[in-house]
Structure formats: structure tokens, C-alpha cells
Design a protein around this nucleic acid. Structure first.
Lengths: 245, 245
DNA sequence: TGGCCGCCTTGATCTCCATCAATCCGTTTG
DNA sequence: CAAACGGATTGATGGAGATCAAGGCGGCCA
């Protein structure tokens, strides 16, 4: 991975190489609000974690001791009902924060969709750092607010949109999410399975499959492979997403 | 529609006394993290607003110039699709914050369900105050985080629960929300109409009505009036809410 | 190379909830 | 007090999407 290359010599002269200072995800994360000196402080309480696809990050009900910042890859967070029904409440990418729950315990589970790297912090350490760095707290509040807006959009989707509208909305939204792989907007990478898409959109895999097939046969999208598609008619897809006619 | 109601005429007279210091909702709101001296500062940038039932607070798409803190009554916030489908994304009560959106424009609309009073702040004023009061910002972050957790619960409800499970969850959750009218947990006040419940739960009014009738005939709840009911069997309702058998 | 396995697609049928429609009931108004 | 009205309930029917079921396709490993 490019991010892990050795540093240029001028940086290497520091007491310790700040991994943060060369972090590929820094520009997209709350860390961007820290100056170089503070980054060193962040570095000292951060722990690097790598996860293979499918590995668990946090588990609903476990004591919430850690916070995470995704530096590469992608993560799903979800909640379960006792009988196994699953709702994926978010797909997260580089720069995204995981585990901002206030409660004693995590209120959701998190797993890597594909291989991922993360920064891990003890909640207590992080809280202390926040106290000293109001800009960091401001960035966190900003991010939480953005996520709230996204959550409201998702509620609209889950509560009131048809299957086709949900898929269309999803295909339009997803490419804007991963800053490390800036899809050219009409080229969409789907790192998750059909089952995960279904559990994110409140549908079944069969319905996801059928709707994608229909969008393909009507020429709105083109399926390049299982995990890659191209939006051929963005305007029509936008109309579909908003339920126009 | 008359949205621009004049402020209480005695508003100016009260300026010297901190209205905040006697605010009934203070204990439940972010203001509780301010000491008396700071409350005065808050007072100086706050404007009191009263709304009659049905009146509009903010409108999706309008420039986001104000923030609100509810001091009494209740508010619904919602999003619309072009064809009129509505998703109510939250019912808010005393102490709740409205309008924390980061964007230029409001991403949702807000209206009073029943007569309500609110504190209104210019976003710019509020931001400045936050800068000076880290405790306030911390309280805001806390609140935003709680709302995020609630939003995830609502996504689970909308994406994966049956009509009966949704109603049961709603009846269990609602009484915990309004601190000014602490329902005795098994006595539930429904300040909103069936139509609003439906739009909150992603159902139709007919389904809401039918499920309530069914819960009544099975003895789980008792309907005292249109807007008041009693939970007769809390345990069974909890089981239903979580989909246990 | 072939067989297995996981994931996806496609088809047939079913079901829950939406839709359409009629009535009820409490409140307001003339 | 009657009529009108808005919201709620109840009944009949329909449809979008779930469920059940049967291949298809590609990757992996013996």
C-alpha cells in the first residue's frame, strides 16, 4: 500500500514518525482540523488496526471502550432483531468515524466489508484530547450532524420509497461516499454483496437482483461485473430515485 | 397560513431577568451545561417564539439561519417526496434541539404538533457562543450522538419490522420522550394524529388503526380516548416490539 | 480438470399491507 | 338541533415485494 511507504527524510527527522501526518485518509477525516503539532498528540493515543474482509470491529452490546477512524477499506454497521433480521444502518469508508455512541455499550455492530485499516482510540483518551482541542470537537459535531442528515434521508427511503426508488437512490449516493476511490460518478463500485445491499435498503436479495436487472434492460445502467456498474442515464436514475412519474 | 406570529409583548421587559434561569425545559436541554453567568449570555441572543398547533417552524430548502430549542409542546420534523409522500423523521419535545443542519439550507421541515414555545437563535450567534463554551459544544455533541442512535433504531424499525412490531415499538418509546409530561410509562399520550403516526412508522392510517384495534382486542393495550391509551401488558408489548415469536 | 461452494439470477406463488370505499363519531357552525 | 366536517374505524380488494424453489455462473482447491 502506498500509504505505508517510508516518509521523506525531512519528516523522518521527527522524534517519531507521525503516521497521521502521512495518512491518506487524513484530509477526509476529523483529523484534518488538527495542526501538525497536535497530530503528534493524536498519534500517541492511536493504535493502528487492520481487518480482513468480514472481521468484526465492534459488537452490539459490548462495552464501548474504543472509537475508530477508518483509514482505508469499508465497513458496515448494523443492528439485529432477535430472530436474525438485520438492518444495515450504514456503509462507512475512509475518514468516517465509528463508535461515537454515548452509552455504556455499543448500540450496533460493525464489520469490515473488504480489507480495511483503522485508527483505534480508547474512548477516555479521545475524550481528553477533545477537551484540549475545540476544533476537533467542532469537526466531530459537524460530522455527527452530517450523519444525522444522512440518517433522515435513509428514513425517507426506508419508510416511503419503492424498491426501484431505493436502488436508484443507493446507486446515486454510494459513489459519493468513498473518498479514496472517487468513482467518476457514473462508474459505481459495489464492494458489498447483494445481501448487504438488501439489508441496507430494507429489501430482499431477490428484489435487489430483479430491480438491477430491470434497470439494466431499460438501459439506465450497465452491469460491468457483479461489483461494478456504470450509470448510463444519470438523469433518468435521478428521476426514478425521487419518484418522478 | 399565518406563520409569523408576533412575539409576546412583554418580551422586552423581561430582558433584565434571565428567562433562561427560570426555563422549565432547561434541565432537559443543552442549556443545563451552562452556569448562571453564561445563561445570561445565552439569553441575550435568544428570542422566544410561540407556535400554534400546525404552524411551521422551518421549511425544507429555506436558508438555515436559525436554530431552535423547544421549551414546551411538541414538534414534528419531516421530509417530502415530490409527489407528496411524507416521512416524519422525528417527534421532538421540550429540551430537544431543532435545526442542527450543517448545510446552507434546511434539509427538512418542522411544524408544531400542538401549541409550542421555543427559543430561537441566529446560527451565527450560536456558533460564536459555542466557541466560547466548550461544555455547550460537548452537550450538543452528546445530543447529536443520542439522536444518531435513535435514528439507527428507527432505520431498523422502518427497514425490518412488521406493522405490529412498529406500533409496539412506538408505544414503548413515545412516553420516554416528553420530559414535561412524564407519562407513567404505561399511560401513553398521543399528541399526534393517526396520519402522523403512520408517516412516522412508514405505514398508512388504516394499518395504524387496525393494529391498534388488534392490540386492544388482545388486551395488550386499552384505548382511553383517541389520544390517550394505557399499556395493560408491557411485557407482551415489549415482546411484540422485538418480534419474539 | 472437475466438482464443490457461495453468490446471484430467474420463475412461481403467497402474504402483508396499501388502496379503495363506506360508515362512525366527536366537534363545530349556522 | 341539524348539518357539515375532519379524523378514525372497519370492510373488500389488489398489488408490490416476500417467500419458496430451481438453476446459473464464477472461483477455488483437490
Amino acid at each position: 500500500m502506498l500509504e505505508l511507504r517510508s516518509l521523506p527524510t525531512d519528516c523522518a527527522q521527527r522524534r517519531q514518525d507521525s503516521v497521521c501526518s502521512t495518512c491518506g485518509a487524513r484530509a477526509f477525516s476529523v483529523c484534518s482540523s488538527l495542526d501538525p503539532a497536535d497530530l503528534a498528540g493524536l498519534d500517541s493515543i492511536a493504535e493502528r488496526v487492520s481487518l480482513k474482509a468480514g472481521e468484526s470491529l465492534i459488537r452490539e452490546g459490548d462495552p464501548a471502550v474504543h472509537l475508530f477512524n477508518i483509514t482505508s477499506g469499508s465497513v458496515r454497521i448494523y443492528k439485529l432483531l432477535p430472530d436474525g433480521r438485520r438492518q444495515i444502518t450504514g456503509f462507512l469508508f475512509a475518514g468516517d468515524f465509528v463508535g461515537l455512541a454515548t452509552g455504556q455499550d455499543y448500540a450496533f455492530s460493525g464489520e469490515a466489508i473488504e480489507d480495511a485499516t483503522l485508527c483505534r482510540f480508547r474512548k477516555t483518551d479521545y475524550r481528553a484530547l477533545i477537551r484540549e482541542r475545540p476544533l476537533l470537537e467542532e469537526a466531530l459535531l459537524d460530522r455527527a450532524t452530517h450523519e444525522l442528515a444522512a440518517a433522515q434521508n435513509q428514513m425517507l427511503l426506508l419508510g416511503r420509497k419503492t424498491a426501484q426508488e431505493r436502488i436508484a437512490s443507493f446507486l446515486l449516493d454510494l459513489p459519493t461516499r468513498d473518498p479514496l476511490r472517487p468513482s467518476t460518478e457514473d462508474q459505481v463500485r459495489l464492494p458489498m454483496t447483494r445481501s448487504e445491499i438488501a439489508d441496507y435498503l430494507g429489501l430482499t436479495i431477490e428484489t435487489v437482483s430483479r430491480v438491477l436487472t430491470k434497470l439494466k434492460t431499460t438501459g439506465v445502467i450497465r452491469l460491468l461485473s457483479l461489483n461494478e456498474l456504470r450509470i448510463e442515464q444519470p438523469d433518468r436514475l435521478r428521476d426514478i430515485a425521487e419518484g418522478e412519474v
